[in-house]
Design a protein around this nucleic acid. Structure first.
Lengths: 337, 337
DNA sequence: GTGAAAGCGCTAACAG
DNA sequence: CTGTTAGCGCTTTCAC
């Protein structure tokens, strides 16, 4: 049933040249006269011929496919990165095979094996575990917001937001709005990202000589809203008091806001809240969330650029890129006091 | 640099048989003795051999890749469908190439051409325009929430939610909570989905002999929140009054809620609101949204099942599947009066 | 400038 | 049961 497209052979016959010449014309490679080129191109145009990428992939031993490993595409922040990656690759005549891992290592290695079998020419890892990826993998790879187990290779491509600075900005903002007893809540799955954000936060506190109460530094193992909601409820019910809260994620902030609301704690008068990511919920929440914006699109774009450079074998100047983050002030911190 | 994996040839030499036999063992195809099988399998195991899918694809003229066309993966509802599709395909040793179209027809056809070149063995279209897809495309295809231009072929696979019933349930719910002057707001990009939802709504109104005021039936051209927000603000400021609102999307509902809030209209006392999709925002909004739940996961699962059946050439009993929807009562409608 | 021919890794006749 | 062989559609020497 599946209508077979024409092959290079038919095109060659139709235009009265050899397949080799057609190939040369298609790939702008080698010599051919202006005339033949035009003739061949005309036939290609007329018959809407599209070269079979599978065959080309086999011959060149390199498909135009890139594997993208992402924990959960349902997460808007990841989806934004993936979307950009996909668009960017498409522009360069590549395609992306997106693989969700659900944070499951086993699933991840199945995916990896699968991608290898598909002969992908590169890999992009988004977030997740500090990655057991074999450095011997030897496939061009870029890591977004994630590090390979040992970054011994000095030319490993890593793209990440300036999480330290993000944490710092969040801390400063909270302080500027008068908060002095500040809680933090991090998703433990954020690994290094979470840790570095906290480091920045710490730095802000130190600079201002504001103590950090260990009881107020929370970790949640689960995704976003529900975990934070529960956790903050518990904290409140335990009688802990605080006037500031830095959340590692906007969804964590949403959960926290709900919990605070339920216990009658007003935001921002009683507690100031800062999130992270600047996902759409941060804008559209009934109480818009002050947050640290990460540039997901830039991350995706840069990932593709660098990966394609590596695939092409070009030298990459700064393989470790750190992207700027930005404080977005909204309702959960209120007006500067 | 890229470490080449072994080929079937090496495996055949290593296990002292011909490549043909190795191939047979791998594919459980044809005859071979128990012993040879074990020997070959052992070698494969030892060397972690993974067959090159590109070569297989070329030979069999069928890759294990399915193309997925989706308007915007950043939309949670679509992301959920895509996620399920991807997982489901992976289990069956297929992979998905996801293509975002941004509702752009030209981009869509580029994608299509690209996918053809990749020799995908099937296509899944999610939502979007009533589709100019060539029926002559002749590639196994399933449509989710979308129809090809002419559904003349009686065996076209279409999967959709029972949008009529969804609209009906929404209308009934609004009525049950005492609403009598009910506005609707649909995303014009939802095309048939939006229209059918409205039809169901109409039916509910007719049954209850409640008139529908044309002034209150709104269409917005843009995505979700912002458009609805603006639109409802305008409606309110024009002095139109209503006590119920059916939104074609949860994000539309969010925008509407924000607008109502800004104008001091209380939900649900003054206006009852019902959304559609049951996306996470509906649960986690500070005012949880009553909505019509669509089963995104089921849609994805079913899409893969049917597509793979079609690819395999099996007969498909009911190619037009309509999935049940469910009313989820939450805060925006309040208690039944 | 162009063609003939080999071969990428795999599968599917066809022999034996 | 197993090996030999041809060929999927394309690119790429190597001749001419």
């Amino acid at each position: 049933m599946t209508m077979k497209g024409l092959s290079i052979k038919q095109i060659s016959e139709l235009s009265g040249v050899s397949t080799a010449t057609v190939s040369r014309v298609i790939n702008h490679n080698g010599r051919f006269s202006k005339e033949t080129e035009e003739r061949v191109l005309a036939v290609i145009q007329e018959y809407q011929y599209v070269p079979n990428m599978v065959a080309r992939g086999l011959r060149r031993n390199a498909s135009a496919i890139v594997g993208v490993i992402v924990p959960d595409i349902t997460n808007e922040f990841f989806a934004r990165i993936v979307l950009k990656i996909q668009m960017q690759l498409f522009e360069r005549n590549f395609s992306a095979v997106i693989c969700n891992t659900n944070e499951n290592e086993q699933l991840e290695s199945s995916h990896l094996q699968f991608l290898r079998a598909q002969n992908v020419s590169g890999l992009i890892f988004i977030s997740g575990n500090p990655s057991h990826v074999q450095p011997s993998e030897s496939l061009p790879t870029v890591f977004i917001d994630r590090r390979p187990k040992d970054v011994k290779a000095r030319d490993t491509i890593i793209i990440e937001s300036d999480n330290v600075h993000g944490g710092y900005l969040a801390g400063k903002a909270l302080l500027a709005h008068g908060a002095r007893r500040i809680a933090t809540i991090m998703d433990s799955r954020m690994h290094t990202a979470g840790q570095t954000r906290f480091m920045g936060f710490e730095k802000a506190m130190k600079e201002a000589h504001v103590p950090i109460d260990p009881h107020l530094q929370l970790q949640v193992p689960e995704i976003g809203f529900r975990a934070a909601h529960e956790c903050i409820l518990k904290l409140l019910d335990a009688g802990e008091s605080f006037d500031g809260l830095f959340c590692g994620t906007d969804w964590l902030a949403m959960g926290a806001l709900a919990a605070l609301h339920e216990r009658g704690v007003h935001v921002p008068t009683q507690v100031k809240v800062v999130g992270f990511d600047d996902v759409s919920i941060a804008t559209f929440s009934s109480k818009p969330i002050t947050t640290i914006r990460q540039d997901a699109e830039k991350m995706g774009e840069m990932a593709v650029d660098l990966l394609l450079m590596r695939i092409a074998g070009s030298k990459i100047e700064h393989p470790h890129r750190v992207l700027e983050v930005e404080l977005i002030q909204r309702a959960t911190t209120g007006i500067i006091s």
